[in-house]
């Protein structure tokens, strides 16, 4: 079996008349990848197809070079942490993880040792003999993750692993994800809590309405969106006066006063606008507190792309731009752990 990778080629999946995934193509290499998308965007379906639990209606998925569906060797290289918080409450954490380890092909004692080590890695050593029914939400989440990594998979598929976790659990989980990615594993991490992805990686896949609307590093994706109006927020002592000075600059398509001291410019030519702002600030001797771009955050990018994906829905100019991004992304997005 070949090196650690996930490759999807024009993958589509539908449930009756509902299209869950639409011609998703991508290539992932070791490292942490954030899979971002709103509810119902196809994240879980995509994860399950990669995990070999579903077959796509069209297209092909290969994990480590082979199709995962019904493939024992592929399944042994995959660890899935499903989203749903549901487990056998009457089992202890150790029993549950041991059972999962045994299904991964380990003998009884090896499975038990691995389960104990895995639970310990996620901070559940003291609770491993307690029934799962008595676990807190964060502990259950960590038990799910422990079963996911107990067989040391090369490809980790984590479907919203931080849902309902407290800060302590979150720190433990993120640390474990980092460790595994740094050791050469491929981690696909779905969430809609964007700052969690930013804390782990800048490699993201944005999925909306069953389509991967962008793949790559945040700044690379930003570069692909030249037509996206760029926002520049300036906090200074005379915000209105600054707005008046910059307003007539070419590229400015909107100005918004957020408060007496804050003004936000919307530009389709950010380079020129930045220069104009700097010139105006210098000439007017403004007292500047900050110049920032809200677009630099993943949140803004995500909302923009999701909104655009919703508007486009596979037709018109947006769709063309979207397909351009998708085809451009694989060459720029693949890379090692960040």
């Amino acid at each position: 079996m070949s090196d650690v990778s996930v490759r999807a080629v024009r993958v589509s999946k539908w449930y009756g008349k509902v299209t869950a995934l639409q011609e998703v193509s991508l290539h992932l290499e070791p490292g942490v990848w954030g899979l971002l998308g709103p509810n119902g965007s196809g994240k879980t379906t995509f994860m399950r197809i990669i995990a070999g639990q579903m077959q796509p209606n069209l297209g092909e998925v290969r994990v480590c070079g082979v199709k995962p569906f019904g493939n024992v060797e592929a399944l042994r290289r995959i660890g899935l942490c499903p989203e749903a918080d549901a487990m056998y409450d009457e089992l202890t954490g150790l029993e549950f993880v041991t059972a999962m380890a045994r299904l991964s092909g380990y003998g009884k004692s090896e499975a038990s040792d691995r389960a104990a080590a895995s639970l310990s890695a996620f901070g559940l050593a003291d609770a491993q003999d307690r029934k799962i029914g008595g676990y807190s939400r964060g502990m259950r989440q960590r038990a799910k993750l422990a079963q996911c990594v107990v067989h040391e998979p090369d490809v980790l598929l984590l479907d919203e692993p931080l849902t309902g976790t407290d800060p302590t659990s979150r720190a433990v989980i993120l640390d474990q994800i980092r460790q595994r990615a740094n050791a050469g594993a491929l981690v696909l991490f779905s969430t809609h809590v964007l700052h969690e992805v930013e804390a782990l990686t800048d490699q993201v896949l944005l999925i909306a309405r069953g389509q991967v609307v962008a793949q790559g590093r945040v700044h690379e994706i930003r570069d692909l969106l030249e037509e996206h109006p760029h926002h520049i927020r300036v906090v200074c002592d005379r915000a209105r006066e600054l707005a008046a000075r910059v307003l007539m600059t070419s590229g400015i398509v909107g100005v918004r006063g957020l408060s007496d001291h804050t003004v936000e410019f919307e530009s389709v030519d950010p380079d020129t606008t930045y220069t104009s702002i700097a010139t105006a600030l210098a000439q007017g001797a403004f007292n500047v507190s900050s110049i920032t771009s809200p677009d630099a955050t993943l949140e803004a990018l995500f909302h923009y792309l999701v909104e655009r994906g919703s508007r486009g829905a596979g037709t018109g100019s947006d769709a063309e731009i979207g397909s351009g991004m998708r085809s451009a992304a694989p060459t720029s997005g693949a890379g090692g752990p960040s």
């Binding site: 042994r76 092909g105 380990y106 040391e152 090369d154 460790q179 740094n182 050791a183």
Partner: peptide, 18 residues
């Protein structure tokens, strides 16, 4: 250079048949 954690390695031992 990427720091690699040596506490994790892919298992290459015997697996029982599925």
């Amino acid at each position: 250079m990427t720091v690699r954690d040596l506490g994790y390695r892919a298992y290459d031992g015997v697996r029982l048949p599925a």
